[in-house]
Amino acid sequence: MNLLDIRNRWVIQIAGVEVWITETIVNTWIIMAVLIGLAVIVRFKLRKFKEVPTGFQNIIEAAVEIFDNFVVGTVGKKLSYIAPWFFAVFAFILLSALSSIVGLRAPTADWATTFALALASFVIMFVLGVKYRKGAYLKGFVDPHWIFFPMNLIGELAKPVALSFRLFGNMLSGTIILTLYYALTPKFVQFGIPAFLHAFFDVVFGGLQTYIFVIISLMYVRIAADDNW
């Protein structure tokens, strides 16, 4: 059973180093292509956008506006310029969760992907913390006394790990349950019934975990960068 070891597609050599092109990477490229295509379509339609939105423009404006308000409500007006990055993360995670409906292995069911995203959130958190609170943020590492520095450091480094494991575990459990279902049941029940499993594990859990990933990243940023928190 191929649950944890992601299938290897090609091995290419770059300057003597083996680079493995895994299923995750191929699926990530597919999702990136879809997102970039959508972005290009939106960019070309942007010229024809009218004052009063209708149809396609309405959907795009509503998505961006709802997300912007959500970010402003979570991190406040001052930090709201990080909204575009988290919108991209949101779109990517949601689309990769939905991609397992069409039979792709979700890229977020690979720890490398989720850890990369969580590490990006961590870097944003750290940089904004240093930028806005400067010494006060760094002083938080040695908070009651300098002897607590290792514990604070571990607590801080556990943030991206916990963030990535949460998304990874949820996506992987959905993938495993569906793989088991397809492997163990006879052919005649593999038609129609998995749709409910997909709806539950991919759409509901995927959407919820996407929301949770983004809101917890935003909370970390706010805790790091906001004085009055």
């Binding site: 916990a162 494991f165 949460r166 575990g169 919820l208 929301y211 949770i212 917890i216």
Partner: peptide
């Protein structure tokens, strides 16, 4: 509540992993 649920879920996810 969703944030709280997610934080409470972390230990469960660790066990699953």
């Amino acid at each position: 509540m969703f944030v709280g649920l997610a934080f409470a879920e972390t230990s469960g996810i660790y066990g699953l992993l």
